[in-house]
Each structure stands twice: as C-alpha cells, then as structure tokens.
C-alpha cells in the first residue's frame, strides 16, 4: 500500500465540519453564565479542598486553572459543564473562561470520554516505525470495550520506544501489533500494562549512563549490552559497536 493512502481515519461530522461547536447556536432560554454564586452552586467538598490547595500554591490563584481542571476531570470523568461550573465557583472565574482554557489543551475532554485513555503516538518518529498500523490495531482491539478510549496523539516524548503509547499515563513501547490486544487485556484485568515494555523500567541508551545491577529493560538494540555484559564506567563512544 502506498504511503499516501495511510492517512489516519478522520472523524467526520454530518455537517462537514470537523469541529463540534462551530454550528451551535446558543440556547436563548438559558441565563448568562456569570461567575457561579457559591450559594447556589454545590461543589463536592473533597474537590473544593483539592482545588483550593492548588490555588494556594501560586502567587496568583488563577494559575491553578489547569491543575483544577485536571482534578475536576478526574472527579467527573470529563470536563462536563457541571465540572467546569464547580471549578469556576471555587476559583471565582466564569465557566466560559475555564471552557476556553480546557478546550485549548489536548488532555481535557469537553465531551464524555471512556474511563481509560490510550494515547497512541502517531507523530513522525513513531510513524516511521509503524505507529499508524499500531493505531489501527489498537482501535480494532478496543472495539467493543466501551471504557477504553483510543486516541491518536502527537509526539508524547518517547520516540526511543516507538511505536509507543501512553496507557492511562503509563508509557509503553516499542509496541508490535499483538501488544494492542495485550493492552486491552491488561486494562480489563486491572493489571499493570505491558510491564515488560514500560518506560519507567528502561535503561538509558547512552552507555555512560548504565550501571551494574540495573534490573530494568535494555534499550532497543542493546539488549545484550545490559543483560549480557553489564557496562561499567564510562565508555568511549568510539568503542561502541
């Protein structure tokens, strides 16, 4: 198949727009969305306290809007209008301000989303190594699993393990097509995902960085170097095979 046809599938909307919202008029029966009054906006106590703790970290409390949205998204599952209303109430901002902020960032969901996030990197380095195929496989594997949301994502900063994915924040790679199924199984079983491919356990590629007794995973192409003969001390790059 030619490279040209390997475009990732694009969500299309009936009206021809890719962007939900552009075609929406306001609901004239709603009142204007001003800063929510605490007297009429109930906020779960634990969420309120967590947001207030974030606000206290900054010289200007408004800096806490992104951390607060993270908290609200975790609490409500997504940045629902209600979640945003609650953050707005605690932070004394308008809900519109927070909607504006939330919609700017890829990690906030302004539509309901599945509980588990699988971000598959489809950026250049990973795609050179087959990320687009893996993305298709991942989508296929997750079919019928309503609580797993698969998203193509821009560079996640782990091209060394490409093709890779971030599964609920856990970076795993390099992935082959079979891993898609395993990821789904691990998620559904509540297990750590692809433990043998987690970035957290991985050794650095640079030979200088290696130490004896590192019990993690060796970088691609250097499995022998770690597992076989541990490198000790700095090695001149010239000597590296």
């Amino acid at each position: 198949m030619s490279a040209i046809d390997r475009r990732p599938p694009v969500r299309r909307y009936e009206h021809g727009s890719r962007v939900p919202g552009w075609d929406d008029a306001v609901d004239l029966t709603k009142p204007p969305a001003t800063v929510p009054d605490p007297a009429t906006t109930p906020v779960p106590e634990e969420l309120r306290r967590a947001i207030e703790a974030e606000m206290a970290k900054y010289p200007d409390a408004r800096s806490a809007s992104i951390p607060a949205l993270h908290l609200a998204q975790r609490h409500h599952g997504w940045c629902s209008p209600e979640a945003i209303q609650q953050v707005a109430c605690v932070m004394r901002l308008t809900p519109a301000y927070l909607t504006s902020v939330a919609s700017f960032y890829d990690m906030f969901a302004l539509q309901p989303k599945p509980r588990h996030d699988v971000y598959v990197c489809t950026n250049i380095s990973c795609s050179l190594l087959g990320a687009d195929e893996f993305y298709d496989a991942m989508c296929h594997a997750a079919e019928g699993h309503g609580d797993i949301g698969v998203r193509g994502f821009e560079c996640l900063g782990a091209c060394d393990i490409g093709p890779m994915a971030s599964v609920n924040g856990e970076y795993v790679g390099p992935l082959d097509l079979d891993d898609a199924r395993l990821i789904v199984e691990d998620i559904e079983a509540g297990r750590p995902v692809l433990e043998h491919k987690q970035l957290r356990r991985r050794a650095v590629a640079d030979a200088h960085g290696r130490v004896e007794g590192f019990d993690g995973i060796a970088p691609v192409g250097q499995e022998d170097a770690v597992a076989g003969s541990p490198v000790s001390g700095p090695v001149n790059p010239e000597e590296t095979p």
Partner: peptide, 10 residues
C-alpha cells in the same frame, strides 16, 4: 471559534 460556555447566550 468564538463562543460561550455550554450554549449560554452572551
């Protein structure tokens, strides 16, 4: 795009 929160009118 220019809009408001959750379809509230401006």
């Amino acid at each position: 795009f220019v809009g408001t929160h959750d379809g509230h009118p401006y």
